[in-house]
Design a protein around this nucleic acid. Structure first.
Length: 268
DNA sequence: ATACAGGCTCGCC
DNA sequence: GGCGAGCCTGTA
């Protein structure tokens, strides 16, 4: 399967802190997972060649190729910062990842750098998963907190263990949660231990494609404070959130992703 | 070395 | 509802 560069910016998409199971290989290639199916991507003329056991439909869904990105970006305010961020990584897309894996990844993200989160993801796949696949809630529940601690989760181990236990004992179906309204979905995600505002928003954006949520982490907070709200007297989290919601429009989650990637990666 | 990092929870005010 | 401390681990 061919993925044209004009449709999706794979390097930016895969390196923008939304997925932690993708690995950079030699020669500009990547390996990763679409749900339970592995993929390999190799650069070729005008884009990338994708090799996978996933169905074409699953590929389109995962890489969000059925989404009209141009139309979404047209709703953005035309300020210089966002314009720069868009030019920095054109065709950066928000993937549609597995809810359970995304939930675990972001519980593990608390006070962690991206390489650490990737290392944890890899360790869980190697030690608990079958053939490198990401382990289910059932498997991580049975593995328990000691195994998770041994995988360097630290204080996050008890959160992941408790979240897995809650999912199994209450027979929660994270796939079925796609049907929920965004406020209802958020309420349910917030019931998991270790999941607060930021992590719930990331899961909603990266697994449930709710583009109206606007996760504010320390990087985005810096962008807002320095570039957008420098005149605000007391820029509390609540005020920044209110500003972002009204200013960036209905696809503010996408604006967040472009700003995040730009501020973290640009060399000045 | 001692601090500190892409966050949450709890206790305190 | 706002604030600070503590939490594991890895890195500077």
């Amino acid at each position: 399967m061919f993925l044209p560069s004009s449709e999706i910016n794979l390097p930016a998409t895969l390196a923008s802190g939304q997925t932690f199971s993708t690995q950079r290989l030699a020669g500009g290639a990547w390996s990763g997972w679409i749900g339970q199916e592995p993929f390999i991507i190799r650069p070729t003329a005008g884009g990338y060649k994708l090799t996978t056991s996933a169905t074409a439909e699953a590929v389109r869904y995962y890489f969000q190729l059925d989404f009209d990105l141009t139309e979404a970006l047209a709703t953005f305010p035309g300020d210089p910062h966002l314009t720069q961020a868009l030019a920095f990584a054109p065709q950066l897309r928000i993937l549609r990842q597995d809810p359970w894996e995304t939930l675990v990844n972001f519980i593990c993200s608390a006070v962690k750098q991206i390489p650490h989160i990737e290392a944890i993801n890899r360790t869980l796949r190697e030690r608990c998963g079958a053939e490198g696949r990401f382990p289910s809630a059932q498997v991580l529940m049975e593995a328990g907190e000691p195994v998770l601690r041994a995988a360097s989760l630290g204080f996050r181990a008890k959160y992941v263990a408790a979240t897995a236990r809650k999912i199994v004992t209450e027979a929660l179906d994270l796939e079925a949660w796609h049907a929920l309204s965004t406020p209802e979905l958020k309420d349910r995600l917030l019931t998991f231990p270790g999941v607060g505002e930021k992590i719930a928003n990331c899961v909603m954006l990266f697994a449930y494609h709710r583009y109206e949520v606007f996760p504010i982490d320390v990087w985005v907070e810096r962008v807002l404070k320095k570039l957008y709200c420098s005149k605000m007297r007391r820029p509390t989290a609540e005020r920044l959130r209110t500003f972002a919601h009204s200013y960036f429009g209905p696809y503010r989650g996408y604006a967040q992703q472009y700003l995040f990637h730009w501020i973290r990666t640009k060399t000045e």
